[in-house]
């Protein structure tokens, strides 16, 4: 198990490194940092000076290695737009995004597990159809559109929830629902398919033959086995929720990493963009690693060799 984890960890490091290289060069292709610093319409002389000062006139490979070395040492540079340290900026925004990511995940699981289980226990009935309908709507509707509908209902008509900002927990309610509902269908379908397969397994018949009540058969014996692939999906979706909250955070002006990413792209804030991309990719890789480990741990056939 330890060897397995170390091997996966090594692989994760390599992936993160590859992402950092790609992100660095792609961002450089997207625009000129010197122009971003000096502003549009700057004199050629100024641009040359800026390039010299920031070392932008060196070969890209050298610049990358320099940036990598700084980053590994924990020096993430300074934001061009906010004029503060990137590390401070990111650390400030990260909690909001993490709270939103986990609450959206929690919301998604909260609706998808019961719906998925119900759909599997009563396949091809109105319950199944209803669950399928909810899933189709969730998957088909763009989340920004759903977010706007929520705003119209709960903020403008009912005046229950604030439209935007990130001051109180109330500010998180709509973003959580909008983001969570978007990923819930994937969970629901996986749980339904897994449950239908598991419910026809021999060991479910054994459990029923013991006289166990239906609830125990479904939740102890079936769900435990159906949930294994869900764990893998959870990690991937959490990565999506953390990285993909750009749209939702922007709509609700929720002051998190996604909103910061949106701002840094708008203002061509290269140091900030670079770190956010790297941070999100590292998070993604770590979450995938966590899911692999969790999967191994959940399946005794892997855990207890």
């Amino acid at each position: 198990m330890i060897g397995y984890i170390l091997k996966r960890l090594g692989l994760a490091l390599l992936v993160a490194l590859a992402v950092s290289i790609i992100a660095f060069f792609l961002l450089r292709l997207s625009g000129d940092i010197a122009v971003a610093i000096a502003g549009e319409g700057a004199q050629d002389e100024d641009l040359r000076l800026i390039r010299q000062t920031y070392g932008l006139d060196r070969p890209l490979v050298i610049q990358y290695l320099d940036w990598l070395w700084q980053t590994i040492r924990g020096d993430f540079g300074t934001s061009i737009y906010f004029k503060t340290e990137v590390s401070k900026l990111v650390l400030e925004k990260l909690p909001t995004t993490i709270i939103l990511g986990f609450s959206a995940l929690g919301f998604a699981l909260l609706i998808s597990i019961p719906l998925g289980v119900l759909a599997a226990v009563y396949p091809n009935t109105w319950i199944d159809r209803l669950a399928l309908g909810i899933a189709v709507v969730g998957q088909a509707m763009p989340n920004f559109f759903f977010a706007l509908i929520l705003v119209m209902i709960f903020s403008i008509s009912l005046r229950w929830l604030p439209v935007s900002g990130s001051g109180t927990w109330l500010h998180f309610v709509m973003p959580t629902i909008a983001l969570g509902y978007y990923v819930a269908p994937a969970f629901m379908r996986l749980i339904r398919a897994g449950m239908i397969e598991v419910l026809s397994a021999d060991y479910i018949r054994t459990a029923r033959a013991k006289g166990l009540p239906a609830g125990k058969v479904i939740f102890k014996h079936a769900l435990r086995n159906a949930v294994v692939p869900v764990v893998a999906l959870t990690a991937v979706q959490l990565g999506f929720l953390l990285g993909g909250s750009v749209v939702i955070e922007t709509i609700f002006a929720l002051d998190g990493l996604g909103y910061l990413a949106y701002q840094s792209i708008t203002y061509k804030d290269f140091p900030v963009m670079q770190i956010i991309v790297l941070l999100l990719s590292v998070l993604y890789v770590l979450l995938t690693l966590a899911s692999d480990i969790a999967n191994a741990w959940l399946d005794p056939r892997i855990r207890v060799a």
């Binding site: 397994a201 021999d202 060991y203 018949r205 054994t206 459990a207 033959a209 014996h221 435990r224 086995n225 959940l298 399946d299 005794p300 056939r301």
Partner: peptide, 17 residues
């Protein structure tokens, strides 16, 4: 009343001791 099945390989739940 209790029952034993044909397939011992699949009649036990793999997730529990």
């Amino acid at each position: 009343m209790a029952m034993i099945f044909q397939e011992p390989m699949t009649a036990l739940n793999p997730a529990y001791t």
